[in-house]
Amino acid sequence: MRAMTLRLALTLLATVALGACSRSHGDSVTGPAATQLPADATLHSIPMGAPPGEPVSIAGRIANPFAGNAQAVAEGKQLFGAMNCVYCHGAQGSGLIGPALNGSGWRYGGTPAELFNSIHDGRPQGMPAWGARLPPDQIWKLVAYLQSLGDASNQPSTTGPQAADQDPADSAHQGLIAAQRAR
C-alpha cells in the first residue's frame, strides 16, 4: 500500500514537472504495465569498479527492459529535454556543463544498470538524484535513449583527443553549440 502511494506520488510529481515544459506534450510517458523492471536490491548490489578479470559483472547481467524499444527511446528523449538534461549534457548527449553521454567514455560505468544508478542516485559532481523525481520506468527509458546514442560513439571525434576525456572541463570543449550543429 505504502509503495503504491509512493509510486503514485512520484508519477504525479513527474507529471507536474513535465507539465511545466512545453516540449513534454504528446503521448504518455508511462510504460506498458506488463514490463518487468529489475529489482531495487539487485541494482543497489552493483559494486563500483568490478575487479579486473571478472568475466561478467553483475551490472552487465542486468538488461534494460526498454532497450531498443522505439517508443521508449522516444519517451526517453522527451524526458532528456523536459528534465533539463539537455542543457547540461548537450543535445544528443554531447557534453556541455556535464560530461558527454554519447559513448565517448563513462565516468561511472556505461552498462544499462550503471546508467540507471547514475540517474537514480545522482553523482558527486553535480548530477542530481532523479530517483526522487522520476519513477523507475522513466529512468529506464532515459537509459534506453542513452543506449540509442551508442552509434554516435562509434563516429570519429571531430574535436580530437579531448572528446574522449572524461573530465567535464574537457567535455565542455565540444559544447552545446557544436552539438546542436550536428543535430
Partner: peptide
C-alpha cells in the same frame, strides 16, 4: 524552447 524550473538544473 520553453523550460520548466527544476532546482539545481539549467533554467
Amino acid at each position: 524552447h520553453k523550460v520548466g524550473y527544476i532546482p539545481g538544473t539549467p533554467y
